[in-house]
């Protein structure tokens, strides 16, 4: 890795994004809008005394899912364009190392993800009075790790698509099953054995677990750190797989 090339790649990816106001809006505004919908959905629920609002339970989970989905989409399309426009092949003839390219993407989109989760978390806290026991900073941390996971998966999946249309088709295959089985709709313990096993193999499950730990506890728990480490490991593994899809030579 070379800091200069890494920084140049990060700057270039951010620069590309800067020229695309719609994507910026998708990153910064859309999560807050969706969060608003979730809030209003449960606005008039009647709860027995002492029971936390549904919004307080699923709000933090939403905060982690948005960056995952949006970054997956953005990365897979941007990387696919890099592959199909010939710029990737051209980059491979320059001194840039694959890691500079992959981490350049990673860093650029993580920065955007951090910004995104700060905005969405702020909206959840200050406008909708999100009430959880743990630290909001930890919620942002999990959201950023999730976003980078989305970036890594997007980089990897882009290798298996030929067109942007095909890239988008990975959404229902890679992303939606994780949302269904992550514990948002049905708690992990109540799923059938098969789904539990599937759920255990999905990285998003661990971010939901970590967020539930943050929601329920004042201080970060060992369980939460364990979940975060698992996510970090999956993330590095996916980045490694993604780097294998970047071949300098075509046969």
């Amino acid at each position: 890795m070379n800091p200069r090339m890494l920084a140049a790649t990060t700057a270039r990816v951010l620069n590309q994004l800067r020229h695309d106001p719609r994507s910026i809006a998708m990153i910064l505004v859309v999560p807050s809008v969706l969060l608003t919908i979730v809030y209003w959905l449960f606005e008039n629920e009647t709860l027995p005394p002492g029971m936390p609002r549904t919004f307080d339970r699923i709000g933090p989970i939403m905060l982690a899912i948005f960056p995952f989905v949006i970054m997956f989409l953005l990365t897979s399309i941007t990387m696919l364009r890099e592959r199909t426009s010939g710029t990737l092949e051209r980059l491979m003839t320059t001194p840039i190392h694959k890691a500079d390219l992959l981490f350049g993407y990673g860093v650029a989109f993580s920065l955007m993800a951090a910004l995104q989760s700060v905005v969405a978390t702020a909206v959840a806290y200050w406008i909708f009075g999100l009430d959880i026991k743990g630290n909001a900073g930890l919620v942002v941390l999990v959201a950023v790790v999730n976003a980078v996971l989305g970036v890594a998966l997007g980089l990897f999946c882009s290798a298996f698509a030929r067109t942007e249309f095909q890239a988008v088709q990975f959404m229902p295959i890679v992303v939606i099953p994780q949302i269904l089985l992550c514990g948002l709709f049905v708690p992990h313990a109540q799923m059938t054995d098969v789904f539990q096993v599937l759920s255990d193999w999905m990285p998003l499950t661990y971010s939901v677990k970590a967020l539930q730990e943050i929601t329920a506890n004042l201080d970060p728990t060992g369980e939460m750190w364990r979940d975060l480490w698992i996510m970090a490991a999956v993330l590095l593994g996916t980045l490694l797989l993604a780097s294998l899809t970047l071949r300098r030579k075509s046969s």
Binding site: R12, N15, Q16, H19, D20, S85, G86, T87, E89, R90, T93
Partner: peptide, 15 residues
């Protein structure tokens, strides 16, 4: 040491 210009211009059209 080498520079390459591909046939269909491989540049970033959005910057």
């Amino acid at each position: 040491l080498i520079g390459y210009m591909t046939q269909d211009a491989a540049v970033y059209s959005d910057i």
